[in-house]
């Protein structure tokens, strides 16, 4: 098998997933296509090191790293905050207020557009872990490989990402209720 055939079997089937990840990391479709193209060039150069069993996670790792290079160049401000563990502590896991509030109902009624905005507004380090789990449906082990972070960190970031998302959706719901 030459490298082109290897690339075609290992990489091409996962282009939709690669584009989705890049879309959520860069924030728009055009930039996402550029990132995936760059990532594919990198992937091609390394394609003989690949084991087919984890081709998808392998490609997503390359896409993710390529997207970070892109973001550092084009949106330097986004990145400086994401490596700051202190920020995570701050964002924390504050208890969502109103134990018995009908938040579940609000979450159910959230529309697509608002949900997309709420996810896009998450700090990058939370967003990437959420997207890898909820959209790419990777398990913790693969997420930890793609992001090069320990599984414990995957667990805490994911818990916080979901908690933040619920808080935001809950707040928006209350505003709507107030306006009505």
């Amino acid at each position: 098998m030459d490298n082109r055939q290897r690339f075609n079997t290992a990489v091409l089937p996962h282009l939709d997933d690669a584009l989705s990840l890049a879309r959520w990391l860069t924030g728009n479709a055009t930039d996402a296509e550029d990132v995936v193209q760059d990532a594919c060039v990198r992937a091609f150069k390394a394609v003989d090191s690949i084991r087919n069993s984890d081709a998808r996670a392998w490609l997503l790792a390359i896409v993710r790293n390529t997207a970070f290079t892109w973001i550092e160049k084009n949106r330097p401000k986004t990145v400086t905050t994401t490596d700051d563990e202190g920020l995570f502590e701050q964002a924390g896991l504050e208890r969502v207020e109103h134990q018995d509030s009908p938040e579940a109902l609000l979450i159910e009624k959230t529309d697509s557009e608002y949900l997309h905005l709420a996810i896009a507004a998450l700090p990058l380090a939370y967003r990437e872990v959420l997207v890898l789990r909820e959209i790419e449906e990777l398990n913790y082990q693969d997420i930890s490989k793609v992001l090069s972070i320990p599984i414990g960190t995957v667990m805490s970031r994911l818990a916080r990402a979901r908690n933040l998302l619920i808080q935001r959706i809950g707040m928006a719901g209350k505003e709507k209720a107030g306006a009505a």
Binding site: D16, L19, S20, E108, T110, S112, L115, E134, I135, I166
Partner: peptide
């Protein structure tokens, strides 16, 4: 637990993989 379950349901119904 209920919130997280609801979030999961909402995410899976609204978020789709991009088609190239």
């Amino acid at each position: 637990h209920d919130r997280l379950m609801q979030l999961r349901k909402t995410l899976s119904s609204h978020l789709k993989v991009e088609r190239t």
